[in-house]
């Protein structure tokens, strides 16, 4: 009697012959896209991509229709279209990242962080001057905005999750409405409410206030999501041990949500660090380092980029890209930290 060992099979997987045929379809589509671009008047990288996609779709449809069925062919078309949509979404992201790094690194040098523009013009060679004033300004304004927004944002989130009073629904609605306020409207508001009526001068604090309006909804919404994830067992346990609501929230709920709340702050910073329009309206913008947010106009990174871009010469545009690169790196660091924190919690 012979022992037969059954070889495990995976009938749902593609057989080698099928894989080879699919590869053939793929290569044929590449060949077609090459010839079409050579012959027709469509040109450029995107033309290759588009023609390849169309060719692949048609060939795959025919292949599936002949080997399998009509519904498999439809499925193949849908798959190709959906993958193409994804590619279209991803393409600009990589284009932006690559562009900023390639164009920005030429403008980087060490004195960028130790000099400001008081002795240099935008048209000077890249080595002259730097963006210290812009970094300091952005840092100060965002820090003050954070000091204002964190209490208000987290209190709003606590109201929505812990108190759950009469106004919960309207406030949830208003917070969402507020997160849609255009940034320029925030600038106009500070302009109309404070600058034209009270101070009559640009200053960093006005920039901070304008940024707060954009920051509060971001912090409130993220914090709310985080606080909703805290199991209510924890709250009940706190109350059952005799804690008042205040002590339960302060000693149990908020510590449990700590990393999430930090994430909310970081996302808030990332939201406003690149805001340009409101700062153009209310913070003025200067060429020298200003450490006093209450007096005198204050520069910021987006303002620096804006100004350098507006100059329009080769040197100034290089400066603009370098500024954008620094700003993008800051956003990337903030974003990665936020991801890391929220990932660790889960």
């Amino acid at each position: 009697m012979t022992i037969t060992t059954v070889k495990p099979t995976k009938p749902w997987m593609a057989r080698p012959a099928q894989r080879l045929q699919s590869l053939g379809v793929f290569l044929a589509a590449i060949a077609i896209s090459y010839f079409v671009v050579q012959i027709s008047d469509f040109k450029g990288k995107l033309a290759y991509l588009t023609v390849f996609f169309l060719a692949f779709m048609v060939l795959d449809f025919i292949y599936q229709y002949l080997t399998l069925s009509k519904s498999a062919a439809k499925d193949a078309i849908a798959r190709a279209v959906i993958a193409f949509g994804m590619a279209v979404v991803v393409f600009p992201i990589f284009s932006i990242l690559v562009t900023v790094f390639l164009r920005g690194y030429k403008g980087l040098h060490f004195s960028l962080f130790s000099l400001d523009m008081r002795a240099a013009s935008m048209n000077d060679p890249i080595g002259a001057g730097g963006l210290q004033h812009a970094l300091v300004g952005t840092f100060l304004m965002v820090a003050i905005a954070l000091v204002i927004s964190v209490p208000l944002g987290i209190l709003t989130a606590l109201y929505l999750t812990e108190i759950r009073g009469r106004f919960t629904k309207p406030i949830a609605f208003l917070v969402q409405a507020m997160s849609g306020v255009p940034s320029i409207v925030a600038g106009l508001f500070i302009l109309s409410a404070l600058i034209y009526t009270v101070t009559r001068a640009y200053s960093g604090i006005m920039g901070s206030l304008a940024l707060s309006i954009l920051m509060i909804p971001t912090i409130a919404r993220t914090s709310e999501e985080v606080l909703l994830l805290i199991p209510s067992d924890l709250r009940e346990a706190g109350v059952a041990l005799g804690g008042t609501q205040w002590r339960t929230v302060a000693l149990v709920v908020v510590p449990a949500a700590k990393s999430g709340l930090v994430t909310a702050m970081i996302l808030g910073i990332a939201r406003v660090a690149g805001e340009t329009a409101p700062l153009l309206l209310v913070a003025g913008g200067s060429d020298q380092t200003n450490l006093n947010p209450f007096n005198g106009p204050m520069a910021s990174l987006p303002y620096y980029v804006w100004k350098a871009y507006s100059f329009g010469t080769a040197e100034s545009v290089t400066r603009a890209w370098a500024g954008i690169l620094v700003l993008l790196i800051i956003v990337l660091i903030l974003f990665t930290t936020a991801r890391f924190l929220s990932g660790r919690k889960g």
Binding site: P92, I93, S95, I96, T99, V100, S183, L267, A270, R271, A273, G274, E275, T276, A277, P302, V305, W306, Y309, A320, W321, I324, L327, L328, V331, L332, L334, F335
Partner: peptide, 13 residues
Amino acid sequence: LMAAFPSILFGLW
């Protein structure tokens, strides 16, 4: 991440 890009970056690009 793309949602967090500054708007001036989209402008320049």
